[in-house]
Design a protein around this nucleic acid. Structure first.
Length: 160
DNA sequence: GCCAACGTTGGC
DNA sequence: GCCAACGTTGGC
C-alpha cells in the first residue's frame, strides 16, 4: 500500500462534503497538472490518502480517504460546461485522470499546517516545502503514521 | 530549445 | 488582497 496527500479547497469540496456524499465516495476530478495526474495513475486500490484542506482557515489535514477505484478518464475534461474543461481532451483521448475516493475517517481534530511545520520528523515532507503547490503528493509511510497519531494524540512531543 | 509573459496556487 | 513560487504557453 502506498500513501498520498490530496488537496481540496473546502469552499469547493470539503471533507464534510465527502461525509455527506453517497457511500461517502466521490470522483477526484479536475486535476490538471501532469505530475499530480501521474500520481493519480500510480494509485492502487486500498491506498490511503490524507485529505488536506488548502486555502482554508487554517489550512490543515482533516482526515483520511481510501482509493476505491483506480485511475480512469476524467470526463469533466471533455465537458465544455465544466470549470475543468480542456478542449484537447476527449473520451478517446482523456488526457486527464481521476480516481474515486471513499472517506475513511475525519480526524477528531485537524492538524494545521503550522503544527505540521513544528514536527521534526516531518522535515522534508513535500507539503512543507517552500512553494509546494502540487495537489496530489506522495507521503511516506512514516509521515502518514506521524500525522495520523498527531490527530488522536495531543502530546505532540510524543511523535515530534 | 530558450525564455519572457502570463495564469494559477495557496500561504499569509 | 498581496505576492512568491511555480507551470504553461508561445514567439522567436
Amino acid at each position: 500500500m502506498h500513501t498520498w496527500l490530496m488537496k481540496s479547497e473546502p469552499t469547493a469540496f470539503s471533507i464534510q462534503d465527502l461525509a455527506r456524499a453517497v457511500k461517502k465516495t466521490t470522483h477526484w476530478e479536475g486535476v490538471r497538472n501532469y505530475q499530480a495526474r501521474n500520481f493519480l495513475r500510480a494509485m492502487q486500490l486500498g491506498d490511503e490518502a490524507l485529505f488536506y484542506h488548502s486555502n482554508a482557515d487554517p489550512s490543515a489535514v482533516a482526515g483520511i480517504v481510501k482509493i476505491v477505484r483506480e485511475a480512469y478518464g476524467d470526463s469533466t475534461a471533455w465537458n465544455p460546461k465544466s470549470d475543468y474543461y480542456d478542449p484537447k481532451a476527449s473520451p478517446d483521448n482523456p488526457i486527464w485522470s481521476m480516481v474515486d475516493v471513499q472517506l475513511l475517517r475525519i480526524f477528531p481534530r485537524e492538524i494545521a499546517l503550522e503544527e505540521l511545520r513544528g514536527i521534526k520528523s516531518l522535515v522534508g515532507m513535500e507539503l512543507l516545502r517552500r512553494g509546494s503547490r502540487l495537489s496530489v503528493q506522495r507521503v511516506t509511510a512514516s509521515q502518514f503514521r506521524t500525522i495520523k497519531s498527531l490527530a488522536t494524540n495531543n502530546r505532540v512531543d510524543a511523535v515530534g
